[in-house]
Design a protein around this nucleic acid. Structure first.
Length: 483
RNA sequence: CGGGGUGUAGCGCAGUUUGGUAGCGCGCUUGGUUCGGGACCAAGAGGCCCCGGGUUCAAGUCCCGGCACUCCGACCA
């Protein structure tokens, strides 16, 4: 056996990440069997391995939503045009990208139906029917569904014409309570991104230009991908009572006054799977965080045809790990060990467990981490206890690596020349002060190709003036190029 | 939506310039030998050459029109 370099690229079919990041990404989603294209433009088949990642995301988030008192519902997928048009900003924001149903069976419809691009209007219509008293509040609803947005250019997971997500829609008696909900759910997303997906995120607020159509405030978590571009990974919106007024939702409060409730909505989509790929993946394929990996540990028996005991031991181990709540799989197919190594690296399986005749003699197994290919020899009777530790150490390394990437590509600028120079030097986050004028935000796009990602909650005072106009500026904005 | 690129077996591609029997590698199936970083031998199977028109005795190849994917922009919560 020849010695192997740690950074050696074993999977030749994947375009190298640093050569062409975009092609590397599309190679990964195909080769790791996450996605297959369909005959409908912009619509993908999410294959079992990709869907299993989504199911794990769902399980974790759904559990947290419910712990916080939310209930799941199912809304219709069609919105009558008249309903969509009730809130002016909302319809203006979404109209350009909605798909319409104009015919049912052989009948031309009297009013065309929009395929939901988001369900605020449907929730509002329903809430108007069921909210009458302060005793009916809060209403904390969520739905898991797919929505359709007729995007002009699409990419697997990142922007597809139809995509899966969850959308929470809540109604509250007071603005304070609604704002607290908006912030709470943003933190749920941020904690999930960092703790479970090992993706560091900036928490902040969107500028008026970038906020959700019809919202009073949009909070966001922004992640930086390996190539330095930003990915909006989850949003939480505060609507005030704007929609409630447009949809005539009222309740009688404790003081016997008729009032409009205050509303929020929040969503996270299959787009985060794209975020996982672009944050952690490397030239050998996917690198999955354990919390959402369909297979957390793959067990590979070595030379088991001549040593049936090896195979028995592998299956016994799998049973033991499963009992301990670890998602694992034994691959006892005829493929060669080398092929299996490459295959499960491509699939991003966090830990590989090799057990062969030599290991059997010594009462050990070899554990290899996906991220650094480091090998650890672990005693068989300690494995079940040790694997969670190894997975946590692995998760921490992924997070640390992603954080280092973000820090290395985050810069601060005081003058417009600095902004332009930093933007021209490559993708990344650029922090500057901002006066708050839309004109200056637009100038950033025209002059430096940057859009505002967010106004981080963690503010810094970089200077006293806006780099565009020179007027006093108190807000720090993080700018970047976004997916 | 604009500008490039691509569409031939599951995957990667050649063949298109100059029209004339559908090819290669990998994968797949079967049998055998192997198995600690993508093993080897042998025998097989697998094609609406993206779709629709046209030219021609004859179209994967030429002409017209679509569609899809992809990259770069624009657009996009």
């Amino acid at each position: 056996m020849t010695a192997m370099k740690k950074d050696e690229k074993l999977v030749q079919e994947i375009t190298s990440r640093d050569v062409d990041f975009a092609r590397w990404y599309t190679d990964i989603v195909k080769k790791a069997e996450l996605i297959e294209y369909s005959s409908v433009r912009g619509c993908c088949v999410i294959r079992p391995y990709g869907y299993a990642i989504w199911e794990n995301i769902q399980k974790i988030l759904d559990t947290r939503f419910k712990e916080l008192g939310h209930e799941n519902v199912m809304m219709p997928m069609f919105i009558p045009e008249s309903l969509l048009q009730k809130e002016k900003d909302h319809v203006e924001g979404f109209a350009p990208e909605v798909a319409w149903v104009t015919q049912g069976g052989s009948e031309q419809l009297a009013e065309r139906l929009c395929v939901r691009p988001t369900s605020e209007t449907l929730f509002c219509e329903h809430y108007a029917n069921i909210i009458h008293s302060y005793r009916d509040l809060p209403k904390l609803y969520n739905q898991w569904c797919s929505v359709v947005r007729w995007e002009k250019s699409t990419r697997p997971f990142l922007r597809t014409a139809e995509f899966l997500w969850q959308e929470g829609h809540t109604m509250h008696a007071t603005p304070e309570e609604a704002i607290a909900e908006t912030e709470q759910m943003l933190n749920v997303y941020a904690d999930f991104a960092e703790g479970d997906l090992a993706i560091p995120v900036l928490r902040g607020r969107k500028t008026d230009k970038e906020k959700f159509a019809g919202a009073e405030a949009t909070y966001t978590i922004e992640a930086m991908m390996h190539d330095g571009k930003a990915l909006q990974s989850g949003t939480s919106h505060y609507f005030g009572d704007g929609f409630a007024k447009a949809f005539d939702i009222t309740f009688t409060d404790r003081d016997n006054q008729l009032k409009h409730p205050h509303q929020t909505s929040w969503g996270m989509s299959t787009r985060v799977i794209g975020g996982i790929i672009m944050t952690h993946g490397d030239d050998n394929g996917l690198v999955l965080p354990p919390a959402v990996a369909p297979i957390q540990v793959v067990i590979l028996p070595i030379a088991f045809h001549k040593n049936p005991a090896v195979l028995e031991r592998a299956h016994a181990l799998a049973a033991e790990l499963k009992a301990a709540g670890i998602r694992c799989k034994v691959d006892d197919t005829d493929a060669s060990p080398g092929w299996k190594f490459a295959e499960y690296e491509m699939k991003g399986v966090p830990l590989r467990l090799e057990i062969g005749p030599r290991d059997m003699e010594n009462g050990v197994a070899v554990v290899v981490s996906r991220d650094n290919r480091e090998k650890n020899t672990v005693a068989l009777d300690e494995l079940t206890a040790k694997l969670p530790e190894l997975m946590e150490a692995y998760r921490a390394r992924l997070y640390e690596k992603a954080l280092q990437n973000r820090e290395a590509k985050t810069t601060a600028a005081v003058t417009m020349d600095e902004v332009k120079a930093q933007s021209a030097a490559g993708n990344g986050f650029i922090k500057t002060m901002w006066c708050g004028d839309l004109a200056c935000e637009e100038a950033m796009k025209e002059q430096a190709g940057l859009t505002s990602r967010c106004m981080p909650f963690a503010q810094e005072q970089l200077s006293d003036v806006c780099p565009v106009c020179g007027k006093p500026a108190k807000t720090m904005v993080v700018w970047g190029k976004a997916y």
